[in-house]
């Protein structure tokens, strides 16, 4: 990897890093999948996946794919944050049909976002780490923005 400083012009040289690979994967077709946990003993779903089931204390919690669309419960556009993030950025809580609420970055013109809207999963770069490497994560975007 070439030597870089955390300057705007250099970051493009680096491969993006997924912020938390335990929460998501990117399939070969470039689609993001959000991953939670499913208890092998009682079936309880967790997000993020927990090492121990809070319902039955089983440690047999397996990875499971989460739904791809949900409903935006609330959001905010953050203007002041650590330098790692590209401000302003939109974040919100998305309610999934399996009963889980997921904190996520949102990708849309900020004035088009509204509580109650349907959003779908995608992925993208939201900032860069201290070494200048782009930070990639899952994102939700209004359903009509989907191709």
């Amino acid at each position: 990897m070439p030597e870089v400083k955390s300057q705007q012009g250099d970051v493009g040289l680096l491969e993006p890093r997924i912020i938390d690979p335990s929460l998501m994967r990117i399939n070969a077709d470039d689609h993001a999948v959000l991953m939670g946990g499913r208890c092998g003993d009682c079936g309880a779903i967790s997000f993020p996946r927990t090492p121990v089931c809070a319902s039955c204390l089983s440690e047999g919690v397996e990875a499971c794919d989460m739904p791809q669309t949900g409903t935006l419960y609330a959001f905010s556009v953050v203007h002041q944050a650590r330098k790692n993030w590209v401000t302003p950025y939109a974040i919100g809580y998305v309610d999934l049909p399996n009963g889980k609420r997921v904190f996520a970055h949102l990708k849309a013109p900020h004035d088009t976002l509204a509580p109650g809207m349907t959003v779908g999963l995608t992925h993208g770069v939201v900032g860069h780490d201290d070494e200048g490497r782009p930070l990639m994560t899952y994102l939700f975007t209004p359903a009509h923005h989907e191709a």
Binding site: I19, D20, Y73, A74, F75, S76, V78, Q80, A81, W85, Y89, I91, G92, Y93, F103, A104, H105, P115, V126, G127, T137
Partner: peptide
């Protein structure tokens, strides 16, 4: 927090909702 949460945004979402 690791995904970008900051305290003002948590309360801001309460306010918005």
């Amino acid at each position: 927090v690791n995904q970008g949460m900051v305290m003002p945004a948590l309360y801001a979402m309460r306010a918005q909702r």
